[in-house]
């Protein structure tokens, strides 16, 4: 059974076809890479899946349910979470609060209970903090939990974004250039981490990445987008040799 299915999905921005007849099927437990030159429409695909821009045509189904017209927060509730290419943390908030916000949809305390500070409220709050600290520990951020998140170094901010995305308890995780701006050591660690959390949280992952080392290293299957159209699809070895892909990257060598 396919977890996520995009059928002939198109989107126009003021007459410009940003993505044209895009098809994608993700099986549960897959780790798939989405690559392509700048402006190919990769992030737009993410934005359509997560409801930021509803597609102009086509259908998106997640776990057999149509999610086309759902608002982003509803899509998060059905089990899709994401990170952002240009880090979008809640910058002025402490690290732990970034994760706590993402827990919000699974909380039960109402407005009145919060104002009254009932016993249940406190219990829930304590368990949330514990859960958040545990999650941060996986990313090596638990010791920094009270830091203001915008003050973290770049690599840690990227990891915090992944931690925050996981806090929504997703089935499908969309990672938008998680290794951008990281040095080779950090990148290598990140690859292990992604593999690790995929197993731990039983995730399906779709990954946009420019760093070919990452994509070729961990993805089981790769899709190549160019000018909004899928030009190739297959396992890493096949993609490496695909002439269309090589042409799209304008002779950039693919390692």
């Amino acid at each position: 059974m396919a977890l996520l299915e995009l059928k002939n999905v198109c989107i126009n921005f003021g007459g410009l076809k940003a993505v044209d007849k895009f098809n994608l099927t993700l099986q549960k437990g897959e780790l798939v890479g989405l690559i392509g030159p700048n402006g190919a429409g990769k992030t737009t695909v993410f934005n359509m899946i997560t409801g930021v821009y509803p597609p102009t045509e086509g259908e998106i189904r997640f776990a057999e349910k149509r999610t086309n017209s759902l608002k982003p927060y509803k899509i998060s509730a059905v089990g899709i979470s994401r990170t952002f290419q240009n880090i979008r943390l809640f910058g002025e908030l402490p690290v732990i609060d970034n994760v706590l916000v993402a827990f919000h949809q699974h909380t039960h305390a109402g407005l009145l209970a919060s104002v009254w500070r009932s016993k249940k409220f406190w219990q829930e709050e304590q368990s949330l903090v514990k859960k958040a600290t545990g999650l941060l520990a996986i990313f090596g951020l638990d010791t920094l939990k009270n830091e203001i998140s915008k003050n973290l170094p770049y690599g840690q901010q990227r990891r915090l974004e992944i931690a925050r995305a996981l806090a929504t308890e997703p089935k499908l995780l969309l990672l938008d250039e998680p290794a951008a701006g990281m040095n080779p050591q950090e990148t290598a660690k990140l690859m292990l981490l992604i593999k690790d959390i995929q197993k731990k949280f039983d995730l399906t992952i779709l990954l946009i990445e420019h760093d070919m080392q990452v994509v070729m290293g961990i993805c089981e299957r790769i899709l190549v987008l160019d000018y909004g159209v899928t030009i190739a699809e297959g396992p890493p070895e096949k993609i490496k040799k695909d002439p269309k892909v090589i042409e799209a990257y304008l002779g950039e060598e693919i390692h």
């Binding site: 997560t50 930021v52 608002k71 982003p72 927060y73 998060s76 509730a77 979470s81 994401r82 952002f84 979008r88 943390l89 809640f90 910058g91 002025e92 908030l93 916000v101 993402a102 919000h104 949809q105 925050r164 995305a165 806090a167 929504t168």
Partner: peptide, 13 residues
């Protein structure tokens, strides 16, 4: 802090 991110994290903004 960030409406788009909040919405993506399941907040009914």
């Amino acid at each position: 802090e960030d409406e788009v991110a909040a919405e993506a994290m399941g907040i009914n903004t």
